[in-house]
C-alpha cells in the first residue's frame, strides 16, 4: 500500500515527494537500522561472545579449540552447583506463588464489576508504580525484625513466634512476588477480557455450570496468557538481582548476586561469563516458549 493509494483518482499534487521518491522499503530499513544495530551490539553480540568465549580455549600452540572445560569446572564447584539449584528452587516457588495469587485476583476482576473490583485492581497494579529499589527498602522495614508485620501479628493475635524472612530464602520470594504481582494480574486479566461474555452465557444456556464453563471454556482460551505469565515470570525471577541481593541470604545466593560477586568482588570476569551462559541455557527453552506464544499472538492481531 502506498501513501497515495487511497486517494482515488484525484490528480497528484505537485510535491517534491511526487517527483522524486525513495522506495518505501529502503527508507523503512534505513529508519529501523539504528535500534537494530543497538540491539545487535548490546544484546546479541555480548550474549554470543560469551557463549563463544566459554566453549573455546587457547591450546598451548596458540590456536583456538573447542573445549567444555569451563563448564566441567562449574559443575565440579560445589558452591556453584548449590547456588544454581537454589536459584531454580526460588524461581519455581516464586512463579508458583505469583500464579496462585494472581489467578484468583484476575478471575475476580473479570467477573465482578463495581467499586470493590476497581479498588482491588488499583491495589494489585500499585507495585507497578513503585520503583524496585524503593520497594526493596520498604519491604525490609515491613518484614524485618521488629518491623510492622511483626508488630501487627503481636498486637492483633498476640503471636510471638515471628521469624523475619529478611535475609532468608523466603525474603527473596516475598520481594519478587510483591514486585511481580502487577504484571501477573495485568497479563491474566488482559487474557480473560478477550473471552467474550456471550460465549460464557451460551455455555450457561446449554446447561453448563460455573465449573464446567470455567474448565471447558475459560481455561482453554487462557492457555496462551497462562503460558506467557509463567514463562515471563520465570525469566524475570531467574534473571533478578536487586531483590535477592538486598533481601536474600548471603549463602546460598541466587545466580544474580553470585555472578556479580564473581565478576566484581572476585574479579573473575571469565568465570562470571560461564555462569551467565549457564543461566541463558537453562532459560533457553522457557525463552523460546515465551517468544513463541507472544509472536503467535501478535501475528494473529496483525492479520
Amino acid at each position: 500500500m502506498t501513501v497515495t493509494g487511497s486517494r482515488g483518482s484525484l490528480p497528484e499534487p505537485a510535491t517534491v515527494r511526487g517527483r522524486f521518491r525513495i522506495p518505501q522499503s529502503v527508507l523503512g530499513y534505513a529508519l529501523i537500522l539504528l535500534p537494530l544495530v543497538v540491539m545487535g551490539t548490546l544484546i546479541l553480540y555480548p550474549a554470543f561472545l560469551s557463549i563463544a568465549d566459554t566453549v573455546t580455549e587457547h591450546s598451548p600452540g596458540g590456536s583456538l579449540q573447542v573445549s567444555l572445560a569451563d563448564y566441567v569446572e562449574f559443575f565440579n564447584t560445589p558452591l556453584a552447583v548449590r547456588n544454581l539449584a537454589f536459584s531454580l528452587r526460588i524461581t519455581a516457588v516464586t512463579v508458583a506463588v505469583l500464579f496462585l495469587a494472581g489467578f484468583p485476583i484476575s478471575l475476580y476482576l473479570r467477573f465482578t464489576h463495581g467499586r470493590l473490583g476497581n479498588l482491588i485492581q488499583m491495589l494489585a497494579l500499585f507495585p507497578l508504580f513503585v520503583p524496585g529499589i524503593i520497594a526493596a527498602y520498604a519491604l525490609i522495614r515491613f518484614i524485618g525484625d521488629n518491623g510492622w508485620l511483626e508488630r501487627f501479628l503481636h498486637l492483633l493475635f498476640g503471636y510471638e513466634g515471628f521469624t523475619s524472612p529478611y535475609l532468608r530464602p523466603a525474603g527473596i520470594v516475598v520481594g519478587l512476588a510483591w514486585e511481580g504481582i502487577s504484571i501477573t494480574v495485568l497479563i491474566l486479566t488482559a487474557g480473560l477480557s478477550q473471552i467474550p461474555d456471550s460465549l460464557l452465557e451460551t455455555a450457561t444456556d446449554v446447561g453448563a455450570n460455573r465449573w464446567q464453563s470455567f474448565w471447558r471454556i475459560t481455561m482453554p482460551l487462557m492457555k496462551r496468557s497462562v503460558l506467557i505469565v509463567l514463562t515471563l515470570n520465570f525469566l524475570t525471577v531467574f534473571g533478578s538481582f536487586t531483590i535477592p541481593y538486598l533481601l536474600g541470604p548471603a549463602s546460598p545466593e541466587m545466580m544474580g548476586p553470585y555472578m556479580r560477586r564473581t565478576f566484581y568482588d572476585a574479579n573473575l570476569p571469565s568465570r562470571a561469563q560461564v555462569q551467565a551462559v549457564i543461566t541463558f541455557l537453562i532459560s533457553a527453552v522457557i525463552s523460546l516458549l515465551y517468544v513463541r506464544s507472544v509472536v503467535s499472538q501478535k501475528v494473529e492481531e496483525e492479520s
Binding site: I43, S50, T236, G239, M259, A272, A276
Partner: peptide, 9 residues
C-alpha cells in the same frame, strides 16, 4: 534473556 546474566555478558 535472564536480565542479569545478559548484563554480566
Amino acid at each position: 534473556f535472564p536480565r542479569f546474566g545478559l548484563y554480566i555478558t
